[in-house]
Amino acid sequence: MPATTPSLTALTFDLDDTLWANRPIMERAETEHYAWLDGEIGHATDFPLEEYTRRRMALGLKHPLRRGDFTWLRREAMRIMLRDAGHGEKEAHHWSHAAVERFLALRHELQPFPEASELLDSLARHYRLGAITNGNVDLTRLALDHHFEFSIAAGEWLAPKPDARPFLAAMARLGSRPSTTLHVGDSWKEDALPAVRLGMQAAWIDVKGRGAPEPVPAGVHVISHVRELPELLRHLNASR
Rank of each mutant, 00 (worst) to 15 (best):
T12G: 03
H94R: 08
L229C: 01
E51L: 09
L19G: 08
H126T: 08
E156H: 11
T9G: 09
P178E: 01
S239L: 12
V220Q: 02
A29W: 12
V222R: 14
S117D: 15
L233V: 01
E118C: 01
R107P: 12
E190K: 07
L233D: 08
G199R: 02
E214A: 13
M57G: 11
H221N: 04
E231T: 14
A131V: 08
K90D: 04
G175Y: 11
P162G: 07
L236E: 06
H43I: 05
D206C: 01
A218W: 04
I80L: 14
R210E: 15
R177N: 00
K90Y: 00
A238L: 06
V184A: 04
T71P: 02
F47H: 01
I205H: 03
T133N: 06
R67F: 13
H235R: 15
G135H: 09
L129C: 09
N237S: 10
G155R: 08
T18L: 08
E156G: 03
A154F: 11
V196C: 02
G68N: 00
V196D: 03
R74T: 03
A202D: 00
E50A: 09
K208Q: 14
D38A: 08
L139C: 12
F148V: 01
F47E: 01
A21Y: 00
L168K: 04
E156R: 10
E51T: 09
R55L: 02
D84A: 06
M57W: 13
V220F: 04
A238G: 05
E50Q: 12
E101P: 03
E190R: 04
A3M: 04
V226L: 08
P166E: 06
T9Q: 13
R197E: 01
E228M: 10
L49G: 03
L110S: 07
H126N: 07
A153L: 03
H97L: 15
V184F: 08
A159I: 06
R55C: 06
